[in-house]
Amino acid sequence: MGGALLAIRDLFVEFKVYEGKLKVLNGVFLSVREGQRVGLVGEAGCGKTTTMKCVLRILPSPPGRITKGEILFRGEDILRMPPRKVQRIRGRGISMIFQDPTAALNPVFTIGDQLMTVIRYGSHDSLTRREVRQRAIKALAEVQLPDPERIMASYPIQLSGGMRQRVCIAMALATEPELLIADEPTTNLDVTIQDQVLRLLNELVVRRKTSVIFITHSLGVVREMADWVYVMYAGNIIEGGPKGDLFREPLHPYTRGLMRAVPKLTGGGIAEGIPGRIPDYLDPPPGCRFHPRCEHAMPRCSQKNPPFRPVREGHEVACFLYQE
């Protein structure tokens, strides 16, 4: 695809544990174009965060090991770059917001100390102390925190959860990255605060034309935050497409099951869930990893992992139901 800012191709990751090897990522394909807001949705343990850790090269190794694949950022493979170059990409090229802002901030330094460190080492220009401070204050004002001067001198414990997450957003955007990875940034927040944080994040990335990968387990959140949506199951991207198309007509049996299981404001009861549970990564089922839970499973589903292929205009799916 032309103009891809980030392209993950055929990524495999294993974790070595006492009992053997956990085959977590099983050939992940994902791409982000410039200025695009990409949503990555999947349930707990499907490999969303592991994939993003590979992108930033922060996968703990051992026990983790990337066994195959490439991650192209502006055409260059991050997985084969020297560490110094990767270090330069972090912050300026790609930055990340984590799920739990309390764990992401250091409790013994003030917000100002932490934010200024990020700006000093992550900024594109060389700055004086005063300029660094000014930028930090501006970054806090941009995330609509009241009284930035006071926030600068505060410790994380003095702020509420919603305010801490705003600080993390300020930190991630202060270095003006080209790609922002937001990993479940509102999962720990109340729904009215989530609404505020999502609106703020959306405003900022749209205004700056930052590309985003928004990771979440909530289909509702992804519908508000992304133009393009990928669905992940047990280490594979199983469906991807433009948001409107994907929500109007999900194709993969897993995506359809997930959509059905979400409680609707319009009522009508709760549909049956998807039987079974996510496979054991030590010994995942052969072929399509979803086939033991799938109502449409055919003999060949247990023999070969279906390739990720377009079915129509940009809408891709990894399922034999749609392939000859």
Partner: peptide, 24 residues
């Protein structure tokens, strides 16, 4: 109600007129 992220247009119509969430 207006802060809830939903998955379909029908649900979007169920929501009351957008009340912007503010404060904590």
């Amino acid at each position: 109600l207006s802060s809830i992220p939903v998955v379909s247009e029908e649900e979007e119509k169920m929501k009351p007129e957008k009340i912007i969430s503010q404060g904590e």
